[in-house]
Amino acid sequence: MANENSTLQTQDVEKQEVEVAEGTERTRPGRAYVPRADIYETEEALVLLADMPGVDQNTLDITLEKNVLSIRGLVETQNPDNYNLAYAEYEVGDYERNFTLSDGIDTDNISASLKNGVLQINLPKAGPAKARKINVSAA
């Protein structure tokens, strides 16, 4: 485990832009970023955490198609009224990221929550696959 008193570095948190496939363009104006994610495994589940500041329940879209879990968060830019941007170190944009799940996930019971701009997705493990005995019949 890393030291709890360590200092946060920019490279640990800096936003990384989504690479758009060649020849395609985004349909929404602005940039899209890859949210930074942690994935850890407990006895019952895989837990995915993703930093998505500015995203709420209404603008977050999680889909599971086949084995691909897609996270998409739209961020409405909230510029303060009557103010001019004087100095900028970060840009506001949407978030997009896909994860491929392994077969051992109970896809019917995936749950997600948002807190302080962090998305948490619980991916419960499927019960142990029952070993099937295959009878070999004598010819």
């Binding site: 890393a2 360590s6 946060l8 640990d12 942690d38 850890y40 495994e41 407990t42």
Partner: peptide, 24 residues
């Protein structure tokens, strides 16, 4: 301020760790 590391239950292990934590 500080961003605290996630408190994992015993036996949990990371597969991927990109989110930083610490004081700022």
């Amino acid at each position: 301020g500080s961003r605290r590391p996630e408190e994992l239950e015993e036996g949990a292990k990371y597969h991927r760790r990109e989110r930083g934590f610490g004081n700022f």
